[in-house]
Amino acid sequence: MLAKRVIPCLDVRDGQVVKGVKFRNHEVIGDIQPLAKRYAESGADELVFYDITASADGRTVDKSWVERVAREINIPFTVAGGIRSVEQAQTMLSMGADKISINSPALLNPDLINTLVEEFGQQCIVIGIDSFYNEQSDQYEVHQFTGDESKSRKSAWQTKDWLQEVISRGAGEIVLNCMNQDGVRRGYDIAQLSALREYCSVPLIASGGAGEIQHFVDAFQQAKVDGALAASVFHKNIFSISDVKAAMAANNVAVRPIEAIQETQ
């Protein structure tokens, strides 16, 4: 039976894992490889690295950490952030990333999705969507450039329409970041995820809002998502991946048990 995925997300800046509040005041948490390895060994089903390295001045950014991660871990991982071209995608994939995730560049140039799918296959193209519930209009709206407060703004798309657009262009997976919940740790946006699940024929990953173990169970049981992404709860050791997986199993959510660490050589 296909297991529901628990996916830690690590913010990377200049080759180190950082945490920051709204993309400012970054605090270095540690080196990428040992953290990636620790998460992989403690039961993560997959990892997402969100690269927030600034490249505004056009300099070549060192991405060699992608290859070091690929060398180290034996679970799949996605690189998100800063990928705008076929060449950049090629670099990430050839260094060993399993999937690449694009967000704002897809909104600026939707044809980029088709091009990437044709070049590398549907299985490795993930589309990230930052979606905001506008109470006044009672609509879910897609936002772009959310990584930079000064540029962050509403796009012309409603989330349901953009979701269907990217799927028709061949996207292999959707990460839906529900902005109203992001960083507040009050739970995933079950209403939004449930509303959009029926329009999403590809795997759907919940993002934004995880604060308690039960939040994961709720997202899987109520919104029927395929995976749940979380950052701070794992970085801050509020609870562990094995705590989440134990709760999933106790609630009859299909889960991949944590492997005993064994020597295979």
Partner: peptide, 10 residues
């Protein structure tokens, strides 16, 4: 079910 079949299966 969602396609592609993506994730950990037995």
């Amino acid at each position: 079910l969602p396609l592609p079949h993506m994730g950990w299966n037995t």
